[in-house]
Write a protein that binds this DNA or RNA. Structure first.
Ligand code: FES
Ligand code: FES
Lengths: 150, 150
DNA sequence: ATATAAAAAGACAAAACTGTCTTATTTCTT
DNA sequence: AAGAAATAAGACAGTTTTGTCTTTTTATAT
């Protein structure tokens, strides 16, 4: 598993919020965790962390909840991954050497860097809202689909 | 970190064994863990697991130790990763959906599969001995190099 | 003011991963 | 047969990740 569970839940929650919330439509944590099938309190912690980093907005009290404003919907997903799993995740040596560099490359460096750089590039150009498009249209999914018996 | 520590140590140990052992040159666990800078008993467990899967050979008793025969040196590294971290590792959905498929793709499926297939392909065609070449020549490294003060 | 609904925070618990220590077993040498 | 050197195996411990529960704080509506 390349991303942590925290990170997976974060991305799912953000996509759900992108589609279903805005400045004056807030979602509470029960609704969110039910929708993305994630553990409620754990998800709440993750969203709190994202609020601290200004990736998500929130308001307390009656009628409050979590939401994304238009600016937040355009944040690239890589930024979220960097916050939750650390900037190193996609820059680390595949064999765990302290520093991944072409100067002192490990035996899998070439294959590995090619892969991680490409992935990093792709994730840095996809915003939360771009990833949400397919989900809103029903062509992409953030929860497990029922087995269809054909 | 995409591979587990177990897997990192396994790959390093195999490369070290590929370069320094053969049917009648066996290495004991102290020598191996010192050379690859890994925790000795943990590494021993990992090698035992690889012995059970016939990736590594071992013999007990005086003059015994771990070693690779010529056939084992040609095992693709992906096979090792599959054993230690599970076949799923490089086939899993990046968002943790139970099944990664283009029929019910998650929002990052396209990017994700494109690169993980490439990596899997690359790792399936590199044998332990191929990865060892650079290390034997001194152009690749499996332990951290000292900081050079230039 | 009070009740209520919500996030925020903190303490705790379970599980997985990583690592250590001890004992058993095997094999070789003498 | 005895001793030594090695892997094999199992019990245990620390740490991190994942998840749960409870309390506090804040804002709104009545
Ligand atoms: S040095 Fe190992 S991946 Fe770059
Ligand atoms: S469905 Fe998520 S990566 Fe394929």
């Amino acid at each position: 598993m390349i991303f942590s569970k925290k990170c997976e839940y974060a991305i799912k929650a953000l996509i759900h919020l992108c589609i279903n919330s805005d400045t004056d439509t807030r979602l509470n944590i029960t609704e969110i965790s039910d929708s993305i099938e994630s553990p409620m309190h754990f998800t709440s912690k993750i969203l709190q962390e994202l609020v601290r980093h200004k990736i998500v907005s929130s308001s307390k009290g009656l009628g409050g909840g979590f939401f994304l404003n238009n600016q937040q919907k355009n944040i690239p997903i890589l930024e979220v991954i960097d916050i939750i799993d650390g900037k190193e995740l996609l820059s680390q040596c595949g064999l765990g050497l302290k520093k991944c560099s072409s100067k002192n490359p490990c035996p899998i460096h070439n294959e590995f860097v090619k892969y991680s750089e490409q992935l990093k590039q792709a994730l840095s150009t996809k915003s939360i809202s771009v990833l949400s498009l397919g989900v809103a249209k029903g062509t992409n999914f953030i929860i497990n689909q029922k087995e269809e018996i054909l």
